[in-house]
Amino acid sequence: MELFTNQVLAGIATGAIYACMALAVVMIYQAIDHLNFAQGEMAMFSTFISWQLMQWGVPYWGAFIIALALSFVGGIAIERILFKPLAKAPVLTNVAGFIALYAIINSSAGLIWDFTIKQYPTPFGSSPFLGSQLISTHQAGMIGVTVLLLIGLYFFFQYTRIGLAMRAAASVPESARLVGINTSWMIALGWGMASAIGAIAGMLIAPVVFLEPNMMGGVLIYGFAAAVLGGLTSPFGAVVGGFLVGIFENLAGTYIPGVGNELKLPIALALIISVLVVKPAGLFGRHIVKRV
């Protein structure tokens, strides 16, 4: 039993990483209706910017805020310059665009900051949390930040005019336009916010997985899986999904014989798919009724 609790705790700790990333994925899905494959790379780039600032002597929180602001502007810029012209193109063409963006960011980051692994500081320290060997204060801080972010987003979307406008633009663009919402800019805003949330995720994840251009590859896959499991329409679902995926992954690695590290990912994904077969819109997603 103790092994079980320990594995669940460890799962929650890794789950916090996935939850952060899943939240960013859901944000952009809400705004543009696509999964952004370049999301992880954008987060990685933001993290590198903050690292570079710290190298130049900016204190942690200063670098954090500047990187956040730059990511927000950068996300909007990417939408305006690269993806607005593709708004009328087929969905699959857009996906190809995301892959292109992925290649561009990954390769540029490799050229600017090279591929060596770098240490990244944490503001929370890394001593054991409440005497537990499995969760460090950093991981606890990460869970805290994720929850705060979720609460913040909830209030933003439920109680502010601009949050309402963004939801309207995402769910019924035509009607939103008719009542005077600038839907095109709402999409750009969605990109900016997703990019900023991704930046937060990246800066929280970097102390755990270390900083390098490919650091987000694995994390993004789990983030997608978490978002899909929780339901792509629900930020809350994404966070729950993140923790669930972390726990799944750890329990599968411990209890199913012969799994080991190599098969962890396929098994976690297989479990998620089994859940989806029963609940096709994810655990907390809105069920969509189709008509001809």
Binding site: A89, T93, G97, I99, Y102, I104, S107
Partner: peptide
Amino acid sequence: LSGAVFGVLLFLVI
């Protein structure tokens, strides 16, 4: 920068 060049070429095509 081969990855970046590939990405740019792909963007041009689409």
